[in-house]
Design a protein around this nucleic acid. Structure first.
Lengths: 340, 340
DNA sequence: TTGAAAGCGCTACCAT
DNA sequence: ATGGTAGCGCTTTCAA
């Protein structure tokens, strides 16, 4: 009962055959006698033989594994994108290994080291908030393992393959939608100000204002690093002027909208009912809220994940030159919610 | 640039040393000259040498990997339990590989095969809703790889190691809490009726009623398999009698409560404001709801995950005999929400 | 039709 | 102080 794993050697001994004959039988080599094949396959099935992946990898010098590093699994954005990656990876004969960085640079470096040791055939990474040094990721490319950056744009790292959501377009659409509904005072609540991947959204907002002749008002823009206290401060700032507060709001993440509504409700803000909000996410929980956002910016994370795998597989197969840096942009949709 | 991965052989050739000397230098064998060690380590660091994990595994015949099969990553319960597993696994020098079954038996079997091929040192599994045949999991134990079942109780499989949340106690506490708040008509909205892992909750509910001299009312119990239409039917049944509808509700999952509240709001149910609800979950989103559950049954998924890894590691190390089947129960907490 | 052997990267035992 | 070698499980070429 406390047996060792089933190996070719074991089957060979049992059947008084050589290891190579067993191997060939299982792979249906033409020059093996049918009856032998049958005997081998039968025993292999009965013993639940599974080839040792480590041995296969060692021999083939490829793992058929795609490594994935992302900040966390709490955000539905990432779990949804994993779904897309899993689908397309499986369809292409690859397995995936997921590592969480918890948005911490050290952990990202550790995860990279482990995946490098696993000799993954390719890497997909959504960099942590803290990442500005890319040595731990560059080493993959140095030894010929392709890397695709997704979602979080490593703007300091120009020469790389990217699959990004079109957050500029998403923010533009959201802002314009609110303007078209008659709002003149559309606020923007952004993510960490320093972080490069928040610029695109802000410029989408700004451009939509400009194209619709709405003057920019600095009091209608605030930023948060997602720390709760920090978020609250940002929200309070946006609504500090009772005379001239925003009537609509575009946010980096839907959670920021929920925080905003909660705050306004807690102070019984008189304009709460009229405030119209849109954020990135499209969380299914919206169906249950009594003051839901009027719409959501749907980033299509599954599609983003699929595109990342598709690009990575082409790079692995050499269909695209490693130096021919690609930038894939996945558009957002504006999902209008039914008002109850 | 398009180099192959860095191996000991490469370093040996570069330094005109033997492979074994390089290996020993990196592992600080005492009988290697200090200067040699330094030269080796320096070059290894410069080339970002990482030992090939497949080769190590092949040699050591152990992978230092814990395989995890769970239904999905959309449920915060599972991502939270992964967090606990990750922590304790890392602390014990293990890596984890996560596979999703999407609550589908076929996919669970496939995942098991892959993990078996990876020669994981142990397996933690939350079985799919559909799983009643355990051959694909038993084969691990047959070859000496321990398996720990967690969260979802495989009641058809008596001889196995389990780490379970005390859902009976959780449901009991919730029901009793509602009774103590004066409710006489406490309903129960359960998960799939056939599935073994939903019995404990129901019996917790029943026992709390009995211990508090509340008569059982069959009209106050409904089940759903989580299909949306099915859930809606269950909810409608619970509230079909306008005279004698429940004033409180305990649910298998918080999402069911959200669905209930949404439905009651949609029909402008007059008793909605008075209805008090509790479900399993403690989703942070509750802070944002205008009709939040009065409390949540917190299953402590991180702790459940840690316990599963702790037990598995003991089994792997042989600190516990494989046949000495353990059942670890993690209690629930009742988390009372602040009423706004 | 089957088998022997090399080699993937690594470690540890045994020589030198 | 350093090197040679066997062997982990597997595939594949070559030999019988």
């Amino acid at each position: 009962m406390e047996n060792k794993p089933v190996t070719l050697k074991l089957i060979a001994k049992e059947l008084k055959l050589s290891i190579s004959t067993v191997s060939k039988s299982l792979k249906d080599y033409p020059r093996i006698k049918e009856s032998t094949k049958l005997r081998v396959k039968e025993l292999a099935a009965r013993l639940n033989f599974t080839p040792d992946i480590s041995a296969l990898r060692l021999r083939d010098r490829k793992s058929r594994i795609i490594g994935i590093i992302l900040p966390n699994l709490s955000d539905h954005f990432f779990t949804r994108s994993i779904y897309g990656m899993e689908q397309l990876a499986t369809a292409n004969g690859y397995n995936i290994i997921i590592s969480q960085s918890h948005d911490n640079f050290e952990m990202e470096v550790n995860a990279a080291a482990t995946l490098l040791g696993s000799r993954v055939d390719g890497l997909i990474v959504a960099i942590s908030k803290q990442t500005s040094d890319f040595a731990h990721l560059d080493q993959f490319e140095k030894i010929g393992i392709p890397v695709v950056y997704y979602t979080r744009n490593p703007s300091f790292n120009l020469n790389c393959h990217k699959v990004l959501g079109n957050t500029h377009q998403g923010c533009y659409m959201a802002t314009e939608y609110l303007i078209n509904r008659g709002h003149k005072k559309v606020a923007y609540l952004g993510g960490p100000k320093m972080v490069n991947f928040s610029h695109d959204r802000f410029s989408g907002y700004i451009n939509a204002l400009k194209d619709n002749d709405i003057p920019f008002n600095a009091n209608h823009v605030a930023y948060t690093d997602f720390d709760d206290a920090n978020t609250l401060t940002a929200i309070k700032n946006l609504f500090s002027d009772p005379e001239n507060g925003p009537t609509a709001l575009v946010a980096f993440k839907e959670k920021l909208l929920f925080d905003t509504i909660k705050f306004l409700r807690s102070i019984a803000h008189p304009e709460l009912k009229k405030l119209e909000c849109i954020g990135f996410g499209n969380d299914p929980i919206i169906a249950y809220l009594s003051s839901p956002p009027i719409a959501s910016i749907e980033e299509n994370p599954e599609s983003l994940g699929e595109q990342a795998v598709a690009l990575l597989v082409k790079l692995i197969h050499g269909d695209i030159d490693a130096k021919d840096y690609k930038k894939v942009i996945v558009n957002c949709n504006l999902k209008i919610h039914q008002t109850a």
